[in-house]
Simulated scan of single mutants.
Amino acid sequence: MIPNKIKFAYLAEKGNAKVTEMPMPELLDDEILVKQDACNICTTDYQQWQGLREHQGYPMAGGHEGAGTIVAKGSKVGATFEVGDCVSVIYDYCGYCDECKHGEVTGCENIKQFGKNYSDEFYGIFGFANYFIRKAKSFVKMSPDLAPSEAAFVEPLSSVIQNMKKLRIKSGTDTVVVIGGGTMGLLNAETARAFGARVIVSELMEKKIEIAESMGFEVVNPKKEDPVQRVKELTNGKGADIVIVAVGLTIANNQALEMVKPKDGKISMYAAGYPAPEMDVDPNKVHYMRLELIGTYGSTLEDFYDAAQMLNTGRVDVSKLVETHIPLDDIQKAFETASTPGNYRVSVTLD
């Protein structure tokens, strides 16, 4: 039976997360109704709760790392999706603007990522909702063997996969250093290894070091050794082929410039920081080193499907990147936990 209301969480203002209800909208021919099982709290979400991303707007019915089960579908939804299928959410998109024509669905010109696309009152994607209706094209099918909180990694993994494609990793030869062992740092590390790279993680928090080592990565601890010198020792003096900056800090940006090899190296500026970090870049150095500074943000439709495939087949294992599970009614506690330094993904359960 389809419920007549949706229960969801939203940010009313900085530091204030609330739970409310709204009427269940009508299910249209090209839409799917999903009972959402879990939605993980992304950095984007908790930084707005902290007041660092006020530009995203309030009230924000956020959450975009979600997964659940199909309970109903419209009459024009084909056999790709059936009631009972496990699915993960991807961003909704129009399909006909210039961005969408190139597969850049997160840059859709008509359906903004955090706009008022599902409500006249609330911004956001309503990830922290127990049910929600979206276009069928805005889902990917997931393995029922994956826990919902792991299936919910499709969105963050898709952005990491775009990063890997831009970096053009040479399987079996490239050494990749990831600065930062948080959720997105280790997701980059795990994916780079799946692409065939040797991976070294630079991290100074003991908890994150333990997780990185338990996942099988070589770890450099800047509290105990010079990370630049250690990376050079581990690469026989050459330096890293690729450095991924997965923390938004000035010191990390400048370390990347020193860690990367002196010719034809690549640095990925994966993380954003608030306030914005700096980077001491000498244009002549970039010129003579033939250095690539690579920016990456968002995902293509292909990236989302690749992410689902890598999770479903176990090529990328995210089981150690979930910190804890907290029910929807305790959403304020969930944001407090997610924003605690050193913690990994907090998964909001939506039963």
Results as ranks from 00 to 15, higher is better:
F195A: 08
N221D: 13
V219G: 02
N254Y: 10
K266H: 10
M279R: 06
K224W: 01
S268Q: 07
I244A: 04
P277T: 02
D282C: 07
A240P: 03
Y274K: 10
A194Q: 08
D226W: 03
V220L: 01
M269C: 11
E203M: 09
Y270I: 07
F195D: 01
D241F: 12
N236L: 10
I211A: 03
K285D: 08
T250P: 01
K208M: 11
E218S: 10
K232D: 02
N236Y: 13
D264Q: 09
K263T: 13
I209K: 05
E233S: 11
M259F: 09
F195L: 08
A212R: 04
K266L: 11
N284L: 14
A212F: 04
A256Y: 10
V245S: 01
E210T: 15
K223Q: 07
N236K: 13
N236P: 00
N236A: 14
T250G: 08
K266F: 05
V199L: 07
A256C: 09
P262I: 14
A240T: 06
D282I: 15
N221A: 02
V243I: 10
T235L: 03
L249A: 15
M205V: 08
E210I: 14
I267Q: 01
L257D: 06
P277I: 00
K261F: 10
K232Q: 13
E225R: 05
Q255L: 12
P277W: 03
G196S: 05
R230N: 09
M259L: 10
K238P: 00
K285V: 00
F217E: 04
E203F: 05
P262G: 12
G237W: 13
A256I: 04
M205D: 07
T235R: 04
V228I: 14
E233M: 11
E278A: 11
V245M: 03
S214V: 09
R230H: 06
R198N: 11
M279D: 04
V199I: 09
G273Q: 05
Q255P: 12
T235F: 04
K208I: 08
A276M: 11
V219W: 00
K223H: 04
E278V: 02
P262M: 13
G273I: 09
I211Y: 00
S214I: 09
A276E: 13
A197E: 03
A256L: 05
P222N: 04
E206C: 02
D241Y: 09
M279V: 14
G237R: 09
K223Y: 03
A272Q: 12
K261H: 10
G239E: 06
E213P: 03
F195R: 02
S202A: 13
I244L: 03
R230M: 14
V243Y: 06
A252K: 01
N221K: 02
N221P: 00
A246V: 09
I267M: 05
F217T: 06
V231N: 00
S268E: 08
I200W: 02
I244T: 01
E210D: 14
D226P: 13
